[in-house]
Design a protein around this nucleic acid. Structure first.
Lengths: 175, 175
DNA sequence: CATCAAATATGATGACCGTCATACATGTGA
DNA sequence: TCACATGTATGACGGTCATCATATTTGATG
């Protein structure tokens, strides 16, 4: 069927959105194209009418996820005190909900092993966030590394007390 | 054939060693059991005489990698100035050679999505390194997060200049 | 209103992988 | 010396997955 233009665009966006969530939750390799399409309410065959390959979807999902994070950072900077974004980032909630969290903290290592296209999407997002932070660029880079590293470590350990300790330590040291 | 005990033990260790290297280079999912065995000089069928499952090998590989890193940290602390380990960690060489580098910087996100057994192996290694660091525990945790985060970010971006800038920024801020 | 093309569904294909079955060869212990 | 246990090799099985082929449906276009 030839579907209405807006509907198609909406479906396209829904695919990217669901892919972004699923990829952040379980990683690129552990999520199949069919699963993404099912989450978007479609069957797997329709996928290649929207994207040329799974890798193309990965790049789109990374770009989307980075934009969402950028929006959150900008909103946080406009409204509240500077610490609130850092605290939210290094919170147990963010640690326990990667699907709704930072793309970098969820997929950076897989991006590192992937194609230049994916790295560019990742890098673009990082650059935008560094610009949004403003102030000293070195400081912004350092904070980004520490925050991301803190969440990644907190997610990778088994003991909940150690996990909390990691989050709290990074939060305190970044004040 | 019933092989000599030492030879078997040596092969076992070689499997873990090669697995650790390959996993760090390309991630757990992108390395097959057959490939690990081939790198160890054996065929895939012999694998299950050494390990009960691939996941068991992953845990052994993480534990091994963490021990290697611990040894490096201890040696560095005994001999030289404090900054040398940090500088080596945040170096272009480490960024470009994950197979011979830190297990946490290579596999933390995949560990985070994996089983408790794997997380325990990861956590044990982290705890040992924090103990080896000595001094303020919060400070050690913070440094670990920032260092790991720095290398991960440096690996995930495409532009070499940005990558260098990330490494340098974290190095400077940790002085 | 008729034709076209876009988006979708169903199904197939080929590749890869973890795991296991089986056979074999050979140190080891009696 | 001899039977046995052990580590290894070859090969197969079942499942999953990315990708593509084909048919179908229907909005858009003239």
């Amino acid at each position: 069927m030839r579907y209405p233009v807006e509907e198609t665009a909406a479906k396209h966006e829904r695919i990217v959105k669901e892919a972004s969530r699923l990829f952040r939750e379980r990683g690129f390799v552990n999520v199949s194209v069919a699963e993404v399409m099912k989450a978007a309410g479609l069957t797997h065959g329709a996928f290649y009418a929207h994207f040329g390959s799974k890798e193309e979807l990965q790049a789109a999902a990374v770009a989307y996820g980075q934009e969402v994070s950028l929006g959150r950072l900008q909103r946080s900077r406009r409204k509240k005190s500077k610490g609130s974004f850092t605290d939210a980032y290094l919170s147990p909630w963010h640690r326990d909900n990667p699907g709704d969290g930072c793309t970098m903290a969820a997929l950076a290592q897989e991006v590192a092993r992937s194609t230049p296209e994916l790295k560019v999407a990742f890098e673009q997002g990082l650059e935008n966030m560094l610009s949004a932070e403003g102030g000293d660029r070195k400081e912004a880079i350092f904070r980004a590394a520490a925050m991301m590293g803190g969440v990644v470590l907190a997610r990778a350990v088994q003991d909940p007390r150690l996990s909390e300790e990691i989050l709290k330590s990074v939060r305190q040291k970044l004040d």
